[in-house]
Amino acid sequence: MKEVTRKIYYLFSPWLRIFHWIMVVCILTLFVTGLLITNPWFIFAVDPTYSGMMVDNIRNIHFLAAYIFSASFILRIYGFIVNPGDRLFSHVWKGYFYRNVVDVMLHYMFLKHEHASYLRNPLARCSYTFLYVLVFIEMLTGFAIYYMTNINGIGGILFGWVIPLLGGEYMAHLIHHYVAWGILLFAFGHVYMVIRAEFMEGESEVSSMFAGSKILAHEPRDAGHLDGTLK
């Protein structure tokens, strides 16, 4: 048998990991309750709708999940400060980023048998940036809709500009809804890619989000990101 030397790279702070799993629970909750708010469920399939699941409760769950999600960002920010592994954002201003992206994409298109080893796959890095953009839009539109119940309150003052900017609250709802689907599709892809990576590379992708470490056989190209040697 071939002997493989593996090295442990400590990547994800506990704060990021906690945030990640809160995010998983919250996104699922927000998505399901969001669909129910848009088109309220009815238990007895009769005309008119008489819902056993009160819309008010569903909305409160939606809001609670939204608040927990938003609050957990504090953990994420703390992790970002204390741990270099939490700062693995895309280095789009560097040439090697594009070389690495091409490397990975060729592999995913089955044109290369494997891609080089990375602490964090450059495509995944892009997708997480994209996710944060989506999440940011959701928070902005969501809080704008939510806080407009009281335009004179602090929330109304902070978010009051959003709806006129979008051209009306109907558009805000629509964007909120489309982006929610976008996040769900991201989750599909994310789960698949993680499982695939685990299977193809055996690089402990899944466990890293529990334990915080990745155990890699090859020296990852972006290893310098952890100690700051790769600028």
């Binding site: 005309d47 008119p48 819902s51 008010d56």
Partner: peptide, 22 residues
């Protein structure tokens, strides 16, 4: 809030004055 909606114009919910969201 209670989840009581008129499903069509002039149905029982519409007559009772329930929510017209749907």
């Amino acid at each position: 809030d209670a989840g009581m909606f008129a499903e069509h114009f002039d149905d029982a919910g519409a007559k009772a004055g329930w929510c017209l969201y749907k």
